[in-house]
């Protein structure tokens, strides 16, 4: 199981209209590791992350060529059930977007839409996933209150619990701490380090220090291309490309 790749990306190109956003992306994501996609704003990190669970479908103007396989299944295969692919991945966005409903219903949304509506089935799972996201103690007495009443840090952990509740293999995190205070950020980072035992974490960030704290593997992107990739040690201690060196020195963001 060690060093096994869960995701393989071959010759991925993505454009919106005339804009070429991702150029010849070739990479693989190892299982049970934290892979950090690093790079300055606007370099295509988020688009790459979203193409993994085909959220790029939302924009009808997007054109994709190439291949992404997850568990050896080509996700662009047209006769595949896209909801099954998405269910393999929990998404944590830049800001928490709780669904307009209660805390309980947020955590159980993924289960309920697939037909698991039995309270006896749902209740223990709500507790389990809220504990996994380190939120249970704070909300256990008000599970049926609207999620919007939680603080933003709590909301982000709720979104994590919600994503975990569909039992994914992969956690996609798109700058998940960018809207949070340092303490809430640290809570999320700690969670990730613990979660990688059972999950594969892919995190987009432009915060160098955060990448250094938690990354096992690093993909450095610039202007839609992967410039350099490898283990955190390789990329941070011994970068090969001039652009990577400049970025790590803090010459640009």
């Amino acid at each position: 199981m060690e060093n096994q790749n869960i995701i393989n990306i071959e010759n991925l190109n993505l454009s919106i209209g005339k804009q070429h956003i991702l150029k010849n992306i070739n990479t693989s994501i190892p299982k049970n590791k934290i892979t950090v996609i690093l790079g300055p704003s606007g370099c295509g990190k988020t688009t790459l992350l979203k193409s993994l669970n085909r959220l790029t479908d939302l924009n009808p103007d997007v054109k994709i060529t190439g291949k992404i396989t997850i568990d050896d299944i080509n996700i662009f295969n047209t006769n595949i059930d896209v909801t099954e692919i998405r269910r393999k991945m929990g998404l944590l966005a830049q800001r928490p977007y709780p669904l307009p409903t209660s805390i309980f219903n947020n955590v159980t949304f993924g289960l309920r839409i697939s037909g698991r509506t039995n309270k006896k089935f749902l209740l223990p799972r709500v507790e389990r996933y809220l504990k996994l996201a380190n939120l249970w103690e704070e909300v256990k007495d008000r599970l049926h209150e609207p999620a919007s009443r939680l603080s933003i840090g709590q909301q982000q952990r709720l979104c994590l619990a919600r994503g975990l509740a569909v039992d994914p293999e992969i956690i996609l995190a798109d700058e998940p701490t960018s809207a949070l205070d340092p303490i809430s950020s640290a809570a999320i980072e700690e969670r990730f380090i613990e979660l990688k035992e059972n999950y594969t974490v892919i995190m987009v960030t432009h915060i160098l220090r955060q990448a250094k704290r938690i990354a096992d593997n690093v993909i450095f992107m610039y202007l839609g291309e992967i410039i350099e990739q490898g283990t955190a040690e390789q990329v941070f201690e011994n970068p090969q490309q001039e652009i990577t060196k400049q970025y790590l020195r803090g010459s640009f963001y």
Partner: peptide, 14 residues
């Protein structure tokens, strides 16, 4: 926000 749609879709909703 589109992110809300994305959140629901990523949980496996059609």
């Amino acid at each position: 926000p589109e992110a809300l749609t994305e959140a629901a879709l990523s949980l496996g909703a059609t």
